[in-house]
Amino acid sequence: MPDNLQSLVDALPRLGEGVVVTLQLTLGGAALAFVLAVALGLAARARSLWLRTPTRVVVEFFRGTSLVVQLFWLFYVLPVFGFRLESMAVGIVALGLNYGAYGSEVVRGSLNAVPVGQWEATKALSLGPVHRVRRVILPQAWALMIPLLTNLLIQLLKGSALATYILLHDVNYEIGQLRIATRDTFFSYAVGLLVYFALAYVLTLGMNALEVRAKRRVGAGPTLREVVRLAPVPTSVGAGAA
């Protein structure tokens, strides 16, 4: 065991680099996913069928074809069509497209959950369509959607472990390296899982802080208990819904 600890200390800088790669994938993917989620979520509510139908198709396609297949398709098949992306870009695009599609359902649901009276009041006050969404509806929907987006963010972090197989040196890869160095599978994987657990915990704390702020902005009081809550509760919207 002391040998293991020595190997762990030796491996720390590399493990740190793995964490950086995993975070780049996670945050990059999350940023892309968020932009897509808002755009698709708003488009799914559009009155025009010309906007709604393609949106539906895109969302169902990226939810339905499996993240693993999408990632390897971008890695192996896209170059055949003349687009060669860096491994990091493949990872971010795959995670972003897949979780953007899931996220759009969260955005759509949260927009629907804003009381209809709020929409009516914006109309009675002659606020324009863009203005009403940006200033009145989205801030309220935002507070509703954060817990569900937190679930998706953790799912996305977990999905990023695939990056090892497209030649990126993320946390998952460094676990394998640690195993080779220590020749102790249990030790190295326990360390690796704890690293992922810690990352998930930190991301959850960050999202909870965002939620407290968003709730305070819509006048719902924050509770300290929510800030230090361990992990988000997955719901079928968060991880399951196909």
């Binding site: 009381p115 009276g117 009041a121 009675a124 002659s126 200033r135 009145v136 801030p139 309220q140 006048g219």
Partner: peptide
């Protein structure tokens, strides 16, 4: 129009609610 359920915007202060439309509409 004044609504039965008030429909004030919870993400704005009282003043913010009142000046929102005069400024932006």
């Amino acid at each position: 129009m004044v609504f039965q359920q008030f429909n004030l915007f919870p993400n704005m202060t009282v003043l913010g609610n009142i000046i929102e439309a005069p400024v932006h509409a």
